[in-house]
Nucleic acid binder design. Structure first.
Length: 101
DNA sequence: CGCAGTCTAGCAC
DNA sequence: GTGCTAGACTGCG
């Protein structure tokens, strides 16, 4: 199974209204290639099966989205995640850590 | 602010 | 088929 596949599975564990970071995701799958994770999301073959919009940067920035950052923000806010500009408000509070499970 | 590390995909030879 | 470059990132100088 590729890193991308693992990322997708872990991403499915992220509940609505919560977000995770590329870092946490990469660490969870046992790699340091944070960029590879983002790339996997960008090339996401399961864009509508995997909530890749719940993945943000460690610094709280939105990062990017295959359909556009604005769309990502819109989806996040629709799920209850407040986003200010290109940043997630209180991301540390809604940050989902796989280590918790 | 800029460079290096790690993984995948695409283009060139 | 192998090698290099670039990309939704992160950490250190």
């Amino acid at each position: 199974m590729s890193l991308a596949e693992k990322c997708y599975q872990l991403l499915l564990r992220v509940p609505k209204g919560r977000v995770t970071t590329y870092k946490e995701l990469a660490e969870a799958v046992g790699t340091r290639a944070y960029r590879a994770v983002g790339q996997a999301m960008n090339r996401n073959p399961r864009l509508f099966e995997v909530p890749c919009h719940r993945v943000v940067c460690s610094n709280g920035e939105i990062g990017g989205y295959a359909l556009g950052v604005e769309k990502k923000i819109e989806l996040l806010q629709k799920e209850g995640v407040l986003v200010k500009g290109n940043r997630v408000e209180g991301m540390e509070g809604i940050l989902y850590r796989f280590s918790s499970q």
